[in-house]
Amino acid sequence: MRAEFRAGERVRVRPGDPAGHNRAPRYVRGQVGRIVECQGSWELADEVAAGVAEPRVEPVYTVAFTAGDLWGEGGHQVTVDLWESYIERVREDGT
């Protein structure tokens, strides 16, 4: 599978609390970050945990968030590795 996002792009983590296993931490759901790099493609952990016989393989990205955006304080960055289906592109107007 070809990686849809490139380093430096702004992305939003899809909000919500899906049923079953999900590897997107709650504290980043709905938050905007920047792609640091693509880590390659891996089986979607949600489907592996659910026992899907042939889980989807998706690119996994390291996404950086500012601590201030996540928690209202802190001058450092927090990075999280996220599957492609967990994120969406942020347009120029911020939506």
Rank of each mutant, 00 (worst) to 15 (best):
M1Q: 03
R2E: 07
R2N: 04
A3R: 03
A3T: 03
F5T: 08
R6D: 00
A7V: 02
A7Q: 06
A7M: 02
E9V: 03
E9K: 00
E9W: 00
R10K: 10
R10D: 04
V11Q: 04
R12P: 03
V13R: 01
V13P: 05
R14C: 00
R14W: 02
R14K: 15
P15S: 08
G16E: 02
D17I: 09
D17E: 14
D17F: 03
D17C: 01
P18S: 11
A19Y: 03
A19H: 01
G20M: 03
H21L: 06
H21N: 00
N22K: 09
R23E: 14
R23L: 10
A24T: 12
A24V: 07
A24P: 03
P25V: 03
P25A: 14
R26N: 08
V28D: 01
R29K: 15
G30R: 01
Q31M: 13
Q31A: 15
V32L: 01
V32Y: 04
V32Q: 06
G33W: 05
G33Y: 06
I35L: 00
I35E: 00
V36S: 05
V36R: 06
E37W: 07
E37I: 05
Q39V: 03
S41L: 06
S41N: 09
W42G: 07
E43H: 09
E43I: 00
L44A: 11
L44T: 07
L44G: 10
L44F: 14
L44H: 07
A45N: 09
A45C: 09
D46A: 06
V48W: 09
A49F: 13
A50L: 11
A50S: 12
A50F: 00
G51T: 11
G51P: 13
V52N: 08
V52P: 13
V52K: 11
A53T: 07
A53N: 04
E54G: 10
E54Q: 14
E54V: 14
R56M: 07
R56T: 10
R56V: 08
V57I: 15
V57W: 11
P59W: 00
T62H: 10
T62V: 08
T62N: 05
T62I: 09
V63M: 02
V63N: 03
F65K: 01
T66E: 13
T66N: 05
T66Q: 13
T66G: 14
A67R: 15
A67S: 11
G68Q: 11
G68L: 08
G68S: 13
D69K: 09
L70K: 03
W71H: 15
W71E: 15
G72M: 14
G72K: 12
E73L: 12
G75R: 13
H76E: 15
H76S: 11
Q77D: 06
V78Y: 00
T79Q: 08
T79E: 13
T79K: 12
D81A: 15
D81S: 14
L82E: 05
L82S: 04
W83C: 10
W83F: 15
E84H: 05
E84T: 05
Y86G: 00
Y86L: 12
Y86S: 11
I87F: 06
E88F: 10
E88M: 09
E88A: 14
R89T: 09
R89S: 15
V90D: 01
V90C: 05
E92Q: 10
E92H: 11
D93M: 09
D93T: 11
G94H: 13
G94F: 12
G94P: 10
T95V: 11
